[in-house]
């Protein structure tokens, strides 16, 4: 089995994604569970983005890192370590991930703390559009991994965790919007 896939940190991220998914479907898509799920997805997204940023810094300064495999198809050494594709206008992708997920956490946390506030409906819309805005970047990064980086195709597992987090986040917001439109915004017992 690929060494990268047995990494305990990666397994923790995958477990976190599983828990987030569980919260999404728990109690028949109740609003509270969905809000917790969105927070969890965004939380895993920001932590995994931070982790890729740490790997990026290690690769730049040391040329290699024990934090991530550089062998095989599933690895991040050739993806995060590729000087041509590991940044956007000189800014590492991990930084973009941290900023984007920070925004999503802020929106979801505000909704979680007071879903009945006057601004709640707008914040739900902002969450939806902010999440959707990230999807083209996920597509772009997957294309880069599969076709552009040195020795492509490669799949960077920690990057994939961040991508799945964003997709999961968008899904939870979709169900939240459904709840709001169908009069299920207030959880029934």
């Amino acid at each position: 089995m690929n060494e990268a896939l047995t990494d305990p940190i990666l397994l923790s991220f995958i477990a976190g994604l599983g828990i987030s998914g569980y919260y999404m479907t728990r109690d028949n898509f109740k609003t509270t569970s969905l809000l917790i799920s969105s927070l969890l997805f965004a939380g895993i997204g920001i932590v995994s983005s931070s982790y890729t940023y740490i790997i990026h810094n290690k690769m730049v300064v040391q040329g290699t890192t024990s934090f991530c495999s550089s062998e095989g198809i599933v690895q991040c050494g050739s993806v995060i370590g590729d000087p041509t594709w590991n940044n956007l206008f000189g800014v590492p992708w991990g930084i973009f991930g941290i900023i984007s997920f920070a925004l999503l956490i802020y929106l979801s946390l505000s909704l979680y703390l007071d879903r009945h506030a006057k601004w709640a409906e707008s914040y739900l819309q902002y969450s939806w559009w902010a999440g959707l805005a990230g999807l083209p970047f996920v597509a772009l990064l997957v294309i880069i991994e599969l076709t552009q980086v040195e020795g492509a195709p490669h799949i960077c597992p920690f990057c994939t965790v961040a991508h799945v987090s964003l997709i999961g986040y968008v899904l939870t917001i979709y169900y939240l919007k459904n709840n709001q439109m169908n009069g299920k915004w207030v959880d029934s017992e």
């Binding site: 920070a102 956490i105 802020y106 946390l109 505000s110 703390l113 007071d114 009945h116 506030a117 006057k118 601004w119 709640a120 207030v186």
Partner: peptide, 16 residues
């Protein structure tokens, strides 16, 4: 349902 009296967005901002 009525929202809370305090603006939780400030709390969310501090948490973030």
């Amino acid at each position: 349902p009525k929202g809370r009296d305090d603006d939780v967005r400030i709390i969310a901002g501090f948490a973030l």
